[in-house]
Simulated scan of single mutants.
Amino acid sequence: MDSFEDEEESDDVPEWTTHVMATLAAEVRRRRKERGMSAQELADACSAIGHPIPRNVIANMESGRRSVLPLVDVIVLAEALGTHPALLIYPLGHVSEVQRLPLQHPTATWDAMSWFTGESGFGLDAALVRAFRAKGRQESAAFNAWNDMRSHHDAARRATDPARREEAERDADQAIKRLKAAAASLRTTRSRIQRILGPTVSVPPGLETLTADIPDGKDSI
């Protein structure tokens, strides 16, 4: 009785490869039309990137006549469509459920994307992905602060009014503080990555080139 019930339940599970390809094909077609591109124009864009995907391959994929698409094609199609490969596989906001793995019932697309990108889960791999994302945020904050610092210093040099010069210098000091904070945070993240990967593996570079521009010359972080 139990085996019969298990068999009935498995019959309700979609065929995984068909589901994945159908989701991918529909999202490629949606994004292509959203950008006003024909299948030939998308093929031309892929060729311009350096990895030709013929128009008939794109057309057959979108119509369901092609059941397999290499990962390299997914990567290039995403670039040609101005999106990320993961969003072709898990179209957030456009598909409510996807089948994450074979023999599994569909789950929320947001949950599947969280698994795919390493946002959820446990262990060192998930910790590494989270550290990688933190690294990106910290680098972005540092570059923004660096640009602000340079801009405010330029404004201070150009200012003829003492009050405006003083204001620009204060703003520059605040930008320097943000730059130092971002560099310090990145230093912590780099240490975390080193602990995860081990002492023999290279880690992302720090922000020495940015902090070297701090006027007092004493802050190489």
Results as ranks from 00 to 15, higher is better:
R195T: 07
A142S: 04
E169G: 05
R187L: 12
E169F: 05
A156G: 05
Q194M: 04
F143S: 04
L197R: 13
W146M: 03
R192W: 08
L197D: 03
A145S: 07
P162V: 06
A172R: 12
S191L: 09
A184G: 09
A145H: 01
R195F: 03
A159P: 07
K177W: 02
L197F: 04
H153R: 14
S151P: 01
L179T: 01
W146Q: 02
Q194S: 13
D148L: 08
R190Q: 11
D161P: 12
R157A: 14
S185H: 11
A163R: 10
E139V: 15
A155Y: 04
L179Y: 00
R178F: 06
R137C: 04
D154M: 07
A183W: 00
N147T: 12
A141I: 01
S191D: 10
L197H: 05
S140H: 06
T160I: 03
R178P: 01
L186V: 06
D148G: 03
R164W: 09
R165G: 15
R158C: 09
K177C: 02
R190L: 05
D148W: 01
E169P: 09
A163W: 07
A163M: 07
R187A: 13
A159L: 07
K180F: 00
R150W: 02
Q174N: 13
A142F: 01
A159V: 04
R170F: 11
E166L: 13
L186S: 01
T160E: 11
A142I: 01
D161N: 14
R150G: 08
L179G: 00
